[in-house]
Every structure is written in C-alpha cells, then in structure tokens.
Design a protein around this nucleic acid. Structure first.
Lengths: 189, 189
DNA sequence: CGAGGCCTTGACCGCGGTCAATGCCCGTGG
DNA sequence: CCACGGGCATTGACCGCGGTCAAGGCCTCG
C-alpha cells in the first residue's frame, strides 16, 4: 500500500525504514469512484493527496461556466489545492478523480508536522514546490503566443500521457481551447 | 542599503540582528542601467536577486521571435531564473532591469548555505516558493479562456502597478497579446 | 537636429469559438 | 441480454476577436 510512496521518497532522499514509517503512518488510504469530487470549490482544503493508482484532476469553473484545468496527477504524484491548503482560504478549484482511484491522504497538520520534524521530508517538500513552480512556469511560457495546433504539439512532446489517457473534453480545458477545435486538430495529426 | 531586505525578513519571521547580519553579508549590492540584461538566455543562472530599487523583468523570446514575459519584480521582491538556478541548466529566459535599478545579489552556494544553516531563511524560502507557485497558478487560471479585454481588466484588478509603470510593449508581452490590441483596449477603458 | 523606438490607428483576414446536428460508446435498469 | 439515455466526439456553417502589416506622430537620447 505504501510501496509507491516509499519509492517516491527513496528516489529523492536518503531515508531509513524507521523514518519512513513515521511518515507513512500519517497517510491513510482512500478509494474513490470515477468522476468523484474530493474537494468542492469554496471549501477549505485540509489534505494533501498522493496518487497510488488512478488520476487526480485540479480544475475550476470560470464565470462564463467553462472549465479550466490546471493539473493532472497520475500514479506516484502528489496533488492538492495548494493555495487553499497553505493559506487555509476557500479553494478556487475543484479536486476530482478522473478514474477510479486509490489515494493516500495526509492532513495539513500532520504534513507540516513532518516538514518541521523530519529534515528529509522538508527537503522533499521543498523539491515538490520547486518542481511545481518550474512546471507552472514552463506552462506559462509554453503557452504564451502559441496557437491551438502548437499547444497540442507542445502537450504531445512534454506530457503525452495526458493526450492518451484523458478525455478530449478535459484535455481541451487544460489547453484552453474548445473540444471542437481539439478534435479538428487531432484529426490532422 | 539592507533596509528593504531586513524589512522583508522581519515581515515574515522572527529574526535577531545577529542572524540577519549573517544573511546580509552574503548579499552584495549592484547597480544597473535601464534595459540592462543581467542574464542571457542559454547561460546558467548563478545568482538570486533582491530588488532594492527599480524593477526586474523575466522574459523569453519564442521561436517566432516574439517576447513572452513571465514576471515583473518591483522593490522589495526576489526574482531570478529559478529553473536554471535550481537545476543549473541553461536558462530559457532573460533577466533584465526595466529601469535603472539597485539590486542585491547572492550566489547560489551562499543561498543554499543559508537555507541549510538558518531555519528562518529556510522558512522564508519555503514561503517564497509557495507564494510564487500560487501566483503562477492564479495566472494560469486567471488567463484561461479570457479574451484580451478581460485579461487587461484582470491585470488592472490584481496587478495594477504593472499597467501604470511598465511600457505597453512589455505589458502586452506579459498578457500574451499584441501592443496594438492593448492600445485599442486601453483607449476604450 | 536627426534617428530610432514606441504608441496609436486603420484596413484586412484567418484562426478558432459558438451553435447545432449526428453518431458512437457505455453504464444502467427493466 | 437488450433497450434506452446521457455524455462525449465529430463535423459543418458562420462570424467575430484579435493578429498582421503599414503609416503617421510623438518622445527621448545622442
């Protein structure tokens, strides 16, 4: 059950069994159905999630009623509504499991307790923040000034899993284009 | 010279004079001219910058020759080409001072040395990462599915300083629209 | 005083959004 | 097991937003 999580830490830092068991006992497994909403927009996020199996999606619904997707987390990735979790303010995004999934969740208190007491955990968290920021940044640059075709190519190059595993509707909302346009583009490679 | 920096830390954590002096002695002041390039695309970034006076811009030039701006740092803000600094890979962005500026720079080694030895510094860095990530995220959501008019309104609401202080050309490259379009939009409020 | 860069404005037009019709896939219940 | 229904993908017609290109004026700096 904690194999993926253990791998995650061992890939990133030196950690002994005892320390890892202190970490793992703060995580509790949960199972979700397809399309299950884990966090509603407007709620305050209390948990950090690690994906054991399946897929998480973070998205919002804009004023005009359209969905905008920010992030997909697949197996072996962390994901949560970070702004809400950090500031304990109402989330402006939903968390949803795209597929039937198995997650490990940890409460905000436990998470920050681990950050403060286990140096390896603090280090890994710093890495998560750095990598998250970098990928957000790459996405901002990556999308600036690109037309729809180029965005799809960009995704194919840097995140092909999203194109193959996720429905067109969600991919389109990730790219900021309409499903119609995505469908047209895919049909001409 | 280190007043702004001191304020930055005191606003965010408890810190005594002695500890702060350990921090401040790692920063060296530099002065720059208007439009001076501090880091070229392709170079590896070695420094973190704090803006005492003036303004930093982080931008790139895409394949089609257009500029894309990611971030403006005004007085009392940190800024650098983070992906390059963290991974020590060639930067995909330029750092430029928009105005005549006074900066404090700290080397990567000193920066991480402080992160590892001064808990308050590690805490502040974590905060910087968290806030940076949150604002990148808000920008991704904020721009998704917005037309040019709405983007300008968004900027007016959340970052008005950029609109008043920065040239239209750069603002346009920040919003991902052309200067022509920005000009037309501004003329109709 | 000249030159270069930026802002503004006009004319044009192509990308991609909207709307709607159709067909497919899949889950659900009789 | 099959019939039904809802959601999604696909495709066509239309058209408006915003990009491109170019011209003209202004400001700044050498």
């Amino acid at each position: 059950m904690y194999k993926e999580l253990e791998k995650y830490f061992k890939d990133r830092t030196e950690i002994d069994e005892e320390t890892f068991s202190k970490i793992s006992e703060c995580f509790t497994p949960i199972k979700t159905k397809i399309s299950q909403i884990i966090l509603q927009k407007g709620e305050v996020c209390k948990k950090y999630y690690f994906v054991n199996k399946g897929c998480l999606r973070l998205f919002t619904i804009n004023n005009d009623g359209n969905e905008g997707t920010r992030y997909f987390a697949f197996e072996g990735a962390f994901g949560t509504a970070l702004p809400s979790l950090i500031e304990q303010t109402p989330a402006f995004e939903y968390i949803q499991t795209v597929e039937k999934s198995e997650l490990l969740e940890i409460s905000r208190e436990d998470f920050y307790k681990l950050v403060d007491t286990i140096p390896q955990f603090a280090f890994v968290y710093r890495q998560i923040l750095e990598v998250s920021f970098i990928s957000a940044q790459k996405r901002i640059y990556g999308f600036q000034g690109l037309n729809a075709l180029e965005k799809v190519k960009w995704l194919k190059q840097y995140n092909p899993k999203i194109l193959t595993r996720i429905s067109n509707k969600m991919v389109a909302s990730f790219l900021g284009i309409t499903p119609s346009t995505l469908s047209r583009i895919k049909s001409q490679l």
